[in-house]
Computed example of a mutant assay.
Amino acid sequence: MTEENGTTTLTLDGEIDILTVERVRVALGEAVEARPRRIVVDMSGVSFIDSTGLGALISGFQRARDSGIGFSLSHPSTQVRQVLVLSGLLEVVPVTP
């Protein structure tokens, strides 16, 4: 996790599934508690995400929104982006290419 100019960037990598999701939840919680202006979740290193990972992202987004913190995803792979689209998450969470 890095912080610069009021933006906290959380870099995720590998697979986000039932075995790793708790680390993602904790990291997102810590990012929200730090109260930056914006949280960016860098997904460029994520090779797979399942429903538990989607749930963690949704929860992080909701917590950030409720705290008045901007939240976005960045650089998902084509495979991960497809899962995000199918889940409907990209209808509420902004994503950068």
Score class of each variant (00 low, 15 high):
Gly60Tyr: 04
Ile39Thr: 10
Thr7Arg: 09
Glu33Gln: 08
Ser44Trp: 00
Val24Pro: 11
Asn5Val: 07
Ala64Met: 01
Asp66Arg: 10
Ser77Pro: 12
Ser44Met: 12
Leu73Asp: 00
Ile69Trp: 05
Leu12Thr: 05
Ala31Arg: 00
Arg38Gln: 15
Ser67Tyr: 03
Leu12Gly: 00
Ile58Val: 12
Gln62Gly: 10
Arg37Cys: 08
Ser59Ala: 14
Glu91Leu: 15
Asp13Cys: 02
Arg25Asp: 09
Ser77Val: 07
Glu30Thr: 07
Gly70Val: 06
Leu19Ser: 07
Gly6Ser: 04
Ala64Ser: 12
Leu28Met: 02
Val80Leu: 07
Pro36Met: 09
Val26Ile: 15
Leu19Trp: 10
Thr20Cys: 13
Asp17Arg: 02
Pro97Ile: 11
Val95Asp: 03
Leu89Ile: 15
Ser87Lys: 12
Gly53Trp: 00
Arg63Glu: 13
Arg37Lys: 15
Ser72His: 14
Ser67Gln: 04
Glu91Asp: 14
Val21Asp: 07
Val41His: 05
Leu54Ser: 05
Thr7His: 03
Val24Trp: 08
Val41Gly: 00
Val40Ala: 07
Ser47Met: 09
Ile69Phe: 06
Pro94Met: 06
Asp13Lys: 00
Glu22Cys: 05
Thr52Met: 09
Val83Gln: 02
Gly68Tyr: 01
Asp42Ile: 07
Gly6His: 08
Ser87Asn: 10
Ser77Arg: 11
Val21Arg: 04
Asp13Tyr: 01
Val41Asp: 03
Glu30Ala: 00
Gln79Glu: 12
Arg81Val: 09
Arg63Gln: 13
Glu22Arg: 05
Val32Ala: 06
Glu33Tyr: 04
Val80Pro: 12
Asn5Leu: 04
Thr20Ser: 09
Gly6Ile: 04
Leu54Ile: 11
Ala56Gln: 03
Ile69Gln: 01
Arg23Ser: 11
Ala64Arg: 10
Glu91Ala: 07
Ser51Gln: 03
Gly14Met: 04
Ala34Gly: 11
Ser67Phe: 06
Ala64Asn: 01
